[in-house]
Design a protein around this nucleic acid. Structure first.
Lengths: 332, 332
DNA sequence: GGGGAGCCTGAGAGCGCTCTCTGGAAGAAT
DNA sequence: ATTCTTCCAGAGAGCGCTCTCAGGCTCCCC
């Protein structure tokens, strides 16, 4: 492997000092045009690429940011488009800023220390934490260590850390209101885990609309998996056969619920209307297609990245969600 | 932010030289036990973490490897569990080796140069390319530049580059043989794009079994999307209404085909049996559940990582695939 | 007891780059 | 013409670490 040329070589070839070459490479304005051009030519002729390690060493910047998924790795990239959307958004923004994206999937086993060690040792200019559990200690720890941190999802413990969250409450409200407006009387909910902010907020949205529309709530809790949706639906039907609509806290469970309804001989949407949350691809393939709430995941990734890169002010941001009406709530 | 301690500080605190401290930190055997202990204590007391940039600068290693997805970013992380599996596997193995994973989604727009520049400038000890198009020039370019490269998926142009591929041919053969053994007479195929190795190989597998079992092949081509599967299925039915089985080159298209069959009034599996490929989550949710071919994606990621990390010999590896029989080929 | 051999530690030279500081030239102002 | 200002290029000091090399100590063998 031919040794990569150093700045020194470039400077020599261009007949200037290393300092000047550095200035040109870094786009300083204070260089005479013909010298700049000479250096630029030398760079191209030699195929010079700056050594990031050397640069980092002196600038104390790493020009890379970490994207951390504290979930057990196995669950992270399943069917959930949230994660992929975030990755895409982050990736685009990072790429635009000409920085690097370091991906860290921390399993349960000591991955924490690893992230902490890595992030606090200057490897990284900032950390984006895609946490689902609002109680994660990692963001706080890193922030205290002086590492720029931005979270996806509002921490359940109030804190001053910047985050980008989806409007789960608003999305759930719109979804349930849609059911109310469709004339549904007995609207149940299948909630998600109540230790996740998404689970909590979506249930809160459901509750708030039911209260306003003077209906009694009836709730079963699942764990965001399809099977738990099926089980929850069966329980709801057993509890109250009069149910004519169900708001489900995510699509996977909604698909499971649809199965349970079919097995129970209830037609969707004629007998029971169904709304999900997330808009996973399978939602639109379902039969009938699932009405659901879409989240701007890619936008979330972009905002997260821009904040951690200091391209926009670090703040606590709430992104709007959107109701996607399909066949599971409206007869064709 | 409190300044991070340097090796110098650690050495001072332990009352030794920087060189000795370095030796301890790097686990050299040639240090007296009590000195080693003193240094270790100093490291802990100060919370010392080595500066990777400084280390890289002198060792010429980056302790990180890049995982490149040359697909347009938007398509990469859709529903396809192949990618997530690879990421998971790679991530685990990299983590175990205590290195970093740099994720690069190169869109179409000049992402190439960026990867090339990045990978050849010593940022990275190796590159894993998750290419789907076997004609990708990137692997060759990097290899020529002396960067260790491993590809996921066999390049369609024969080369000596190491890769890890799935046994697409074998999987397709098993799938089609399963249809033959189920007594199906008229077995069609919906092929994938013929510029992707997976598309080519899966079709080859289909063809080989049909030839051996003395059947005529009947083929429509899709582009791995669900809609293209629907369209292809319609065309097949129009071409030959006698079809009683279809081998589909991926699950997404198979799901689309299932829709077309339902709309055409054909029962699955009674009238037409259906086999897919990939085993995406939605395959098992489908009604009936889809018989398909599962690929060891996580294992693929692990092997890719181990090869690029030189933990195992760089070679051209073929991973076995597995037929998963479900309701779309066997009546309950 | 003398001379190696072996082992550990410390000194010091860089890795490639950025950035401050200084010097010198050119233009502006007196 | 002289001084001041401005602007640009170069010299040089490090960033924090690794690693070679040399020195000094201990231990063993003759």
């Amino acid at each position: 492997m031919r040794a990569r040329p150093t700045l020194e070589k470039v400077a020599a070839r261009a007949g200037v000092s290393r300092a000047t070459a550095s200035r040109v490479v870094n786009g300083s304005m204070r260089v005479a045009p013909q010298i700049r051009e000479a250096v630029t030519r030398a760079v191209e002729e030699l195929g010079y690429v700056p050594n990031q390690a050397a640069r980092s060493l002196v600038t104390q910047r790493a020009d890379s940011i970490a994207l951390v998924f504290p979930e057990p790795a196995t669950r992270v990239f399943s069917e959930d488009p949230t994660f992929s959307g975030i990755i895409r958004g982050v990736s685009m923004e990072i790429e635009e800023a000409d920085k690097q994206l370091v991906l860290m999937l921390t399993g349960l086993s000591g991955g924490y220390q690893r992230v902490e060690r890595y992030a606090t040792n200057g490897h990284v200019d900032g950390v984006i934490i895609a946490s689902m559990h609002g109680t994660d200690p990692l963001p706080g720890v890193l922030a205290r260590r002086g590492v720029p941190v931005v979270c996806s999802g509002r921490p359940s413990v109030p804190s001053s850390l910047p985050y980008v969250d989806m409007d789960n409450v608003g999305g759930a409200e719109r979804a349930v209101r849609h059911l109310v407006e469709g004339g549904r009387r007995r609207i149940a909910a299948i909630a998600g885990p109540q230790d996740m902010i998404a689970g909590i907020d979506r249930l809160a949205g459901y509750r708030s609309v039911l209260r306003d529309s003077d209906r009694r709530s009836i709730i079963a809790v699942g764990d965001f998996t399809r099977d738990s949706g099926t089980a929850a639906m069966r329980q709801l039907l057993a509890d109250d056969p009069e149910i004519d609509a169900v708001f489900v806290a995510n699509d996977l469970m909604a698909l499971g619920a649809m199965l349970a309804l079919r097995q129970a001989g209830r037609r969707v949407p004629d007998d029971v209307a169904l709304v999900g949350f997330d808009d996973i691809p399978a939602a639109s393939y379902a039969e009938p297609a699932l009405t659901t709430v879409r989240q701007p995941t890619e936008e979330m990734g972009r905002r997260l990245a821009r904040m951690v890169l200091d391209l926009e002010e670090k703040a606590q941001v709430m992104l709007p969600t959107e109701l996607v009406v399909r066949g599971s709530t409206t007869p064709p």
